[in-house]
Design a binder for these strands. Structure first.
Lengths: 166, 166
DNA sequence: GAAACTATGTCAGTTATATTGACATATATA
DNA sequence: TATATATGTCAATATAACTGACATAGTTTC
């Protein structure tokens, strides 16, 4: 941290550091979504479909409202995306067993295949970044990212070893 | 890293770790944009306007094509957003001095005020996360984020101390 | 058992952000 | 002079979100 743009002004340094943090999030997210978006476009799907497929693959048997609270979108928005995925055979809905109003969501084989193709890309990108940066850096990355996330509920999705720092 | 969900399968652990990375990016970005979006909505502006205001504030005197290559959108998309910002007095355009075809962009006072309000929110979020995580973790965060970003051109926006690891 | 609440779905209208393609203008460079 | 570049604009389209209103089936509570 010695070679900063402006010299020895600690206030500027702090601002520069924080702005870099902001920008890194923007650039990382932009590049992280670019390739999956291209794969999805070939099938007439968009980023919203990816998010649904991803989380249903991650938590099979999740309900529609689980999905709504993760994505933080309205049910009307989800509806169009989800019903397209069901219609086109990527996602299967089972009636809930304890509560029969619920629709338990899971990927079909077709859905799982697409999920793999999409996530593979992002997984590789993360893997390369993690490997290049080293285990210690990965710990730091996780601590910071966890601090950026709002809801304790979402932070709880991540592992206990990180959570205990709070 | 001792308490993982599944026990002692190292392959599972790796997959779990990578998926956490993917999800952290999603959740962090989702929460990072939520509050500025709300402020913008009051003025009839959206996230796209924020990005323009942010980068023009960051690099005063940048050209339209600089902005296009950072945002990676088409000029037609930028056009509507940028001309609204000019029309409503957030951004001022000067004719380029060396090349008079260029429009050099800078924030007006009104624009700078909005930029401050919007960025303040994100800056505070990052600041809190950085402070809670500690300096070492911040280094790790930056290393990993830099690894996720594609273009060397964009990586070069960040500081030399990190860049030299490559 | 009726009333209230919950999970989900759907209709209709609207907004923001992006796209592609075509063309125009001013300026710079070979 | 010819060509390339920086910018702007018109038109049509797509996607992903929103709000509001209403419907249905199933669960819970009084």
């Amino acid at each position: 941290m010695t070679l900063m743009k402006s010299g020895a002004n600690p206030l500027f340094l702090r601002d520069e550091e924080l702005r870099q943090g902001i920008e890194m999030l923007f650039f990382a997210y932009r590049d992280f979504t670019a390739e999956p978006d291209a794969i999805l476009a070939e099938r007439g799907l968009g980023r919203a479909h990816h998010r649904v497929i991803y989380f249903v693959g991650r938590y099979p048997g999740m309900t529609v409202s689980d999905l709504l609270s993760i994505l933080k979108i309205t049910k009307q928005s989800l509806s169009r995306v989800l019903s397209q995925l069901v219609r086109e055979g990527y996602i299967h809905q089972d009636q809930g067993v304890e509560d029969r109003r619920q629709r338990l969501l899971r990927l079909t084989d077709k859905g799982a295949q697409l999920e793999k193709e999409l996530t593979e890309n992002q997984r590789q990108r993360i893997e390369r970044a993690f490997r290049d940066a080293g285990a210690e850096a990965v710990d730091g990355f996780r601590k910071v990212m966890l601090g950026i996330v709002n809801a304790a509920e979402d932070r709880d999705r991540f592992d206990a070893a990180i959570r205990k720092r709070r």
